[in-house]
Amino acid sequence: MHQWDFASVLANREALLVGAIGTLRIFAICLVAGLSLGFIVGLGRYSRNRLFYWPATAFTEFFRNTPVLVQILWFYFALPILVPFSIGPLAAAAMGISLNSAAFSAEIFRGGIQSIDRGQWDGARAIGMTAGQAMRRIVLPQALRRMTPALTNRAIEIFKMSTLASAVAYVELLQQGKLIASLNFNPIEAYTAVAVIFFVCLWPLVQLTYVLERRLGRSE
């Protein structure tokens, strides 16, 4: 029977803290970059102008249908050959995860905007708003409410995806877990600790999406 000993992990709590900061940093970058780019791409997908529609569609199809890890490795190993500057682990991982989340959230934004009744547009235009104003003041606020559970889910996915950055040796929680495991020969405790940290961080968020979904279901 294995003798569990978390003291060796606790002794390295500073390494885990550094990892947690790294995880939060890449999470924040990808959340902001992924969702804002996703919004732009989503508008392109919604547009009737082919000049916007086709590039946006090609983008979402490509990034939805290739694995994130492949994208991260591509940005890390392949892209530096084409561009004149070097690309670090954080940049490569952030690009891969952001573009992937942009593709997925674009579909959420498009679906949310499309779900708003045509009459809302007509009403806004009838009282003299421009299309941009109607979108900003009437359609988006209603659409965002409907999209909140799906967007929260996306945020959770981004948090989980951040572990993939360890494949290019970016310092985040899993990478630090690896380090601790290899220095102290305690993979059981080190990886269990990392798993528990993720569970503790994400479980409340998951419960929140359930609550949001139920509340939305009741109000609609």
């Binding site: 899993l174 993979p187 059981i188 990886y191 569970f199 994400l202 998951v206």
Partner: peptide
């Protein structure tokens, strides 16, 4: 169900590959 849905798959994979054989 909750544990496997809310922890990153890569962490699960490392756990099963490096930790489980020892346990």
């Amino acid at each position: 169900i909750e544990v496997f849905r809310t922890t990153p798959p890569l962490v699960q994979l490392f756990w099963f590959f490096f930790a489980l054989p020892l346990i």
